[in-house]
Simulated scan of single mutants.
Amino acid sequence: MRLEVLCEDRLGLTRELLDILASNSIDLRGIEIDITGIIYLNCPDIDFETFRDLMAEIRRISGVKDVRKIQFMPSERHNTELVSLLTNLPYPVLSIDLKGAIDMANHAALKLLAKSEDEAMGQLISHLLPSFNFAKWIEGDITRQKQAIVIDGLDYTMEILPVYITGESNETVLASAVMSIHPTTHAMTTESLADSNTLGFEHFVGLSNRHKALMSQAKKLAMLDQPLLIEGETGTGKEMLAKACHNRSHRASQPFLVLSCASMPDDVAETELFGHAPGSFNHQHGHKGIFEQANGGTVLLDEIGEMSPHLQIKLLRFLQDGTFRRVGEEHEVHVDVRIMLQLVTI
């Protein structure tokens, strides 16, 4: 039961209202006071006779103009409208508490994060978006901030905004933070192009649906560790695409090495790929192959179709478990390398 009491601004009037509720053994769940001369009361439902007597008692209070039953408290209506608005926004919005945990996420945010509401509530934002350091943000200047992030291989712009509450003494206290996430448009990426020396997907320009689909697929595949085959005609930028995929992955800080397999004899190609032991080929010192040199990073093999079947079998075994033997050695070497292959199509 919610009541709206229209009244004058008189000292002690609210106290008399509360005394009437107490004398009738009615609990008070909430009270709101409007400076225009309205007091809102939230109480449990009561039987009709008690309600009739209560209304009469309230009307007898000096300064009370009228009292009536309403459906919602003002704060309930405002909160419901706000939650409905946020829930149905087309872009993701999240509310984050001061510990960095999510306490509200709209439908678009849950869909983007692939989480149910129960799974998302209480999750640390740093676990769901590792590229954003919430602890560093809240320990710093705590200002409105934008940052480029990657979710499921696609580019987004994240904006976080601090939420302050102003008390009666006009002091502001940080209450929480609101985060919104928007797909990054081409115009946004070109703003930072001049400041970036790393080859990324922003260097690929195209307007066709086929180009957009290719870039979207490449961005998703870039986040994986599985081998990647890139096919295309000569001069279409296959190596640039491979480099962009490497720079987008978690291996970006590690080496990216390229080896052309075209017209290369088997013994030379095997040595370049796997290396050789000391004493082999009249060399006193051993030689690390490209896989060892790129350990932790990415190797792009160009013109893989020109490689002999014998070497392709050895390469296939390496792709299965990441182990190989240097030429002239018996023990196996294990490395962590992502392999990308490119083929020229006609």
Rank of each mutant, 00 (worst) to 15 (best):
M1E: 07
L13Y: 09
L17R: 05
L18C: 11
S25H: 15
G30F: 13
E32V: 08
C43P: 03
D53I: 14
L54A: 06
A56V: 11
R59Y: 12
R60N: 13
K65R: 15
K65S: 08
Q71H: 08
Q71F: 10
F72A: 06
F72T: 08
P74M: 06
E81K: 14
S84D: 13
L86E: 00
N88E: 11
L89I: 14
P92Y: 05
V93C: 07
L98F: 07
A101R: 15
I102E: 02
I102F: 11
M104H: 14
A105L: 06
H107D: 08
A109S: 10
A109K: 03
S116R: 11
E117W: 13
M121S: 10
I125G: 01
S126E: 14
L129H: 06
P130M: 12
F132W: 12
N133T: 04
F134L: 04
I142F: 09
I149A: 03
D152G: 15
L154H: 07
L154R: 15
D155Q: 08
D155L: 04
E159Q: 12
Y164S: 05
I165K: 14
L174I: 14
A175E: 13
S176K: 15
H182G: 00
T184C: 05
T185S: 12
T190D: 05
L193C: 01
A194P: 02
S196N: 11
N197V: 05
H203T: 04
H203Y: 09
L214G: 03
Q217E: 11
E231R: 13
G235P: 02
K238C: 03
C245R: 03
C245K: 02
C245S: 08
N247H: 08
N247A: 05
H250K: 11
H250I: 07
M264C: 14
M264Q: 10
A269G: 00
T271K: 09
H276Q: 06
S280P: 00
F281Q: 01
G286P: 06
H287S: 10
Q293P: 02
N295P: 04
V299S: 00
E303S: 08
E303P: 05
G305V: 10
H310R: 15
L311E: 01
V327H: 06
E330Q: 14
